[in-house]
């Protein structure tokens, strides 16, 4: 079963969609999930929700019958972050759909977390529908144990003058598949996606990020930085597509993959499509290890190789963690990075 296919046919030819998930992945054992908590009062719980485009055909069947289906109408400004917390300590299977409608001129922050200390299965579908002049800042953290499978599909629509800042932190498990699609339909709108991941052991990470710019004078960013340890592998498929009429718009796509092990494998397909003359688009993609010179310098200041490596890695990751608005959460992320890297025994 092939999943998370790009919108671009050429990718099939180059095997970038070679990512295959075992057939039995999509068989949730338990249809009850009672680890959900929130500080938001207006959550509407639905029995069923049908997503627009699932991550693969099989996941659609599941998402038609989720065990958590939420709808949030954000009609006023919120100064404190709205928290949606999914804790797998009591259940191991979560199939969730979250639809968030942001009304005209509303400003809000979201913190969505998925945490598990044991094997878990997560298949989630999140949509943000941002109306005019809205301003959303969302931090999403997937902190599932190594044996977990994580499927995350995010789709957004941005109307005039709206802004969406999305930060995804993925401590990937055995399988982590993410899809992020934003249609910037309005003029003067801005969609920024920043994402960090750390792959370990035999983990597979598949990222499929696309931003379609239809509106004039709009902005799109895809910035992904991650590290691969052990035998982990990552497929990155990114697209910034300037549609006809998207004049004066700007799009930036940056991908950096740090390979911390000789067996790690990184594939990248950073696409840039342009159907409008008056735009400014750029993309860059880089893969490599942490520089020996940088590491040597840090070690000459008295740090061990492992400490130096972690320090340099965190320095790189800072670029995508800037927008994490909660300092406590940010320091927890850095602590987790420390633990993840030090556990990589084939290096030290």
């Amino acid at each position: 079963m092939e999943i998370n296919e790009t919108f671009v046919r050429t990718s099939k030819n180059y095997g970038i969609n070679s990512f295959v998930v075992a057939e039995n992945t999509f068989s949730p054992k338990n249809k009850i999930f009672n680890g959900f908590s929130t500080n938001f009062n207006g959550v509407v719980l639905h029995g069923k929700a049908i997503p627009i485009s699932p991550i693969c055909t099989d996941s659609k069947i599941e998402l038609e019958n989720p065990n958590i289906s939420l709808e949030l109408n954000i009609e006023k400004n919120y100064t404190s972050p709205i928290i949606l917390n999914f804790d797998f300590s009591q259940n191991d299977t979560l199939v969730d759909t979250i639809k968030i409608n942001v009304k005209d001129g509303v400003t809000a922050k979201f913190l969505i977390t998925y945490t598990s200390n044991k094997n878990a299965y997560h298949n989630g579908f999140i949509t943000f529908d941002c109306e005019k002049n809205s301003n959303i800042d969302c931090v999403l953290i997937c902190d599932l144990s190594y044996e977990s499978d994580n499927f995350l599909n995010i789709e957004n629509t941005l109307k005039e003058n709206s802004k969406l800042k999305f930060t995804i932190v993925d401590f990937a498990g055995k399988t982590s598949v993410s899809r992020f699609l934003t249609d910037i339909t309005g003029n003067n709108a801005s969609s920024q996606l920043k994402m960090m991941y750390i792959g370990e052991k035999e983990g597979k990470i598949d990222l499929n990020f696309a931003q379609n710019i239809y509106g004039k004078n709009s902005y799109a960013l895809i910035k992904t930085i991650g590290a691969l340890q052990g035998n982990s592998q990552k497929n990155f498929k990114g697209l910034i597509d300037f549609k006809k009429g998207a004049s004066k718009s700007k799009g930036v796509e940056e991908e950096l993959c740090l390979t911390l092990s000789k067996n790690a494998k990184s594939k990248a397909l950073p696409l840039l499509c342009c159907g409008e003359e008056d735009v400014d688009g750029s993309h860059s993609s880089a893969t490599g290890k942490i520089g020996d010179k940088e590491l040597f310098y840090i070690m000459s200041r008295g740090l061990s190789r492992a400490e130096g490596l972690k320090l340099l890695l965190k320095a790189k990751l800072t670029k995508v963690l800037d927008d994490v608005f909660d300092e406590k959460i940010k320091s927890q992320i850095y602590e987790k990075i420390d633990r993840k890297i030090i556990n990589e025994d084939d290096r030290f």
Binding site: Y14, T287, G288
Partner: peptide, 19 residues
């Protein structure tokens, strides 16, 4: 359109792509 595929199978490498 720019459609680059980058398939890197080792860590001891310096690779960069800009467009």
């Amino acid at each position: 359109d720019t459609l680059p595929v980058n398939d890197i199978q080792t860590d001891d490498v310096e690779f960069s792509h800009e467009a």
